[in-house]
């Protein structure tokens, strides 16, 4: 444990994703999922490469958020949820009962649709996960990491005078970047974004998109978005879901220029 701590944050060059044999960060095989009796994912197979932005697109209720929440087992808190198939991160099947869910969630960070900073100061928002996950860190070290992570999330200069004020008093866009900084404190390797810009104005959205492009240098990014333009702007690969099925997947450029399926073509032209 001690060694891990010394290694942690700043000393570590980056959190390059664990890579399976074929260079993929996440490998999804034959995944089916249910809420109660209702099946929400059908036979999904997919590979997500490291240091890339993968965007999930599709109409509401198509299962893209469900799949995203499988990657860090956030669906566990929903009682009626059930899943078959395998999801591999590195060489580990994370759907197994024996998976260390807490370790997984430290490896796979998540940012939610609604900015959800805790009702405490900005500083404490970042201190909490650090203190909980790395209980032996010294105080000075914690402060260094917090400043560094705020800088990584492009928010430090905006809020450096207000570190000890409530995190709920900054704008929605700033709150969302604060959540990103908070996620970075636990030193994840894969970052999940669940429609991070859904409640933000265009300017804040632009800042987050720029940030995502920076982050993919160090991390593997998976983002769910409703906004086709956003996917076009930032994604390397795109997966299109419809009613729980993965309909089409491929490099963003190709997919947006020449969709293979009629379904995607109709979706891109706004006919849903």
């Amino acid at each position: 444990m001690g060694n891990v701590l010394v290694e942690h944050p700043l000393s570590k060059t980056n959190g390059s994703a664990p890579v399976s044999d074929d260079g993929c960060a996440i490998v999804v095989e034959n995944v089916n999922a249910w809420y109660g009796r209702k099946q929400v994912l059908f036979n999904v197979d997919m590979q997500i490469k490291k240091n890339e932005i993968m965007a999930f697109i599709g109409p509401s209720g198509c299962g893209k958020t469900t799949l995203l929440r499988c990657f860090n087992r956030m669906n566990d808190i929903i009682k009626s949820f059930r899943l078959t198939g395998t999801i591999k991160i590195g060489d580990e099947d994370i759907t197994s009962k024996n998976t260390d869910v807490l370790a997984l969630r430290k490896k796979v960070g998540m940012v939610f649709q609604q900015p959800n900073p805790f009702p405490m100061s900005i500083f404490n928002n970042l201190r909490l996960p650090l203190a909980e996950n790395f209980p032996d860190l010294e105080k000075a070290k914690i402060e260094d990491i917090i400043v560094q992570k705020l800088k990584d999330a492009n928010i430090y200069t905006e809020i450096k005078d207000r570190l000890h004020h409530s995190a709920l008093r900054i704008s929605g866009g700033q709150q969302q970047r604060l959540c990103i900084a908070r996620m970075l404190t636990i030193d994840p390797q894969i970052l999940l974004f669940d429609e991070p810009c859904a409640s933000l104005d265009p300017l804040s959205t632009k800042k987050i998109e720029d940030l995502l492009l920076q982050l993919k240098e160090k991390y593997t990014v998976v983002i769910v978005t409703h906004n086709i333009e956003q996917a076009r702007r930032i994604a390397d690969n795109v997966a299109f879901f419809y009613t729980g099925k993965l309909v089409e997947m491929g490099p963003a450029k190709k997919l947006f220029l020449a969709p293979e399926t009629e379904m995607l073509e109709r979706y891109l032209s706004g006919k849903f």
Partner: peptide, 10 residues
């Protein structure tokens, strides 16, 4: 708040 905390591995 609970979701945010759980997603941080707490």
């Amino acid at each position: 708040y609970r979701e945010a905390s759980l997603a941080l591995g707490i």
